[in-house]
Design a protein around this nucleic acid. Structure first.
Lengths: 203, 203
DNA sequence: GTCTATATGGCGATAGAC
DNA sequence: GTCTATCGCCATATAGAC
């Protein structure tokens, strides 16, 4: 593959990522992707053959990246509180830059769950490598909460406010984007605070 | 409007609700709605003129119903713990019967936030009627947590596991639907437990 | 590799018979 | 009020010139 091919392919993939994430598979238009990439519509087919294949390429790449981040954080050998802090910090920043990402991922996977299995395999995600170390660590530090509950509660509090952004933004801040964005950043601290206070009850 | 018209209209609306919620506005097909309603495709246009108008009708109805439920729970004059329990119970059951609902609502609103304002007005939702009583109650019972944080954390823990169902189901239970469904029901208790433990830290 | 032009199919919407 | 038939558009995809 020549440099030019590689470069064009990446430009297309990035444009496709933006459009797919914002509009979803069904709502995305090949014309809009081509426009955003600054190339002709038929070039999309030259590089990726079909909309389906282009979508698969983009989606797998996203899943691999996110899974890798999570694995990296969970394996670091620090205290629960530090691990939580690092996790909340990293994902809050990621979602701050990609506010459409959660809705996109959960929406697409919900509408095509079978495709998920294939992608987990190719992205090389090992669920047990995430859960087992955490379970051992909770045990060692003397917390009796079930790791499923713990990790799901934490994920919920970080990701859900981004998923429900337009509604919550309107109810809490009368639609003030900037105020809500600042509030989400302030939650970096208040989520860790909330979770640690809860954990005290499981000692 | 005759009885027959009313009845057909309701059959169409229910079929449309199912298809829209599962496939989203962009992914839904008028033909599929007609098939599910057991009528001809052109009848859809006879009753609702266009796909857009049919969608608006269905969506507004859903939002009104959910908003009403929330208002009802939050106004009952009971302790924080009872209120939390009632809330978690009611919404867990609702989501158990409508697992696609959160993804649908958040997805559509994210992709067309302007339409939201109109619908909040017509559904007669008063945000302050939800937040103010809760704030007073947290104060009165001596908890210093900010009501925004409290309500958002609670909503997150109830709704997010449904939004992220296919992924979490796979990571926690290797894709076993039934096991995950039971786990979600068990969270009725563990969420209240978690939240109350956290609240103790804010006394 | 990149473009213009066009084929092909599907979908929302309408016309008109009954 | 409900159907059949069909229109017209738009989106994906391909053919072929350069």
């Amino acid at each position: 593959m020549t440099n030019k091919e590689k470069q064009t392919e990446e430009i297309i993939a990035e444009a496709a990522r933006e459009v797919f994430v914002e509009k979803g598979m069904a709502g995305a238009r090949m014309q809009e992707i081509a426009d955003k990439a600054g190339i002709n519509k038929s070039l999309l087919h030259y590089y990726f053959r079909s909309k389906d294949k282009l979508f698969d390429f983009v989606f797998s790449k996203i899943m691999g990246k996110i899974g890798g981040m999570l694995q990296g954080i969970m394996q670091e050998g620090v205290s629960i509180e530090d691990k939580i802090g690092k996790f909340v910090d990293t994902y809050t920043d990621l979602l701050s830059k990609n506010p459409f990402l959660p809705n996109f991922i959960f929406g697409e996977i919900t509408r095509n769950p079978d495709g998920l299995i294939k992608r987990f395999a190719s992205a090389d995600i090992k669920p047990n490598q995430l859960l087992d170390p955490l379970q051992r660590q909770l045990n060692k530090e003397g917390y009796t909460i079930h790791p499923h509950d713990f990790i799901l509660n934490l994920l919920s509090m970080v990701i859900f406010p981004v998923v429900a952004r337009p509604i919550v933004e309107r109810i809490f801040f009368e639609g003030d984007h900037k105020a809500y964005k600042e509030y989400l950043l302030s939650r970096k601290l208040s989520i860790v605070d909330f979770v640690m206070k809860a954990l005290q009850g499981y000692k």
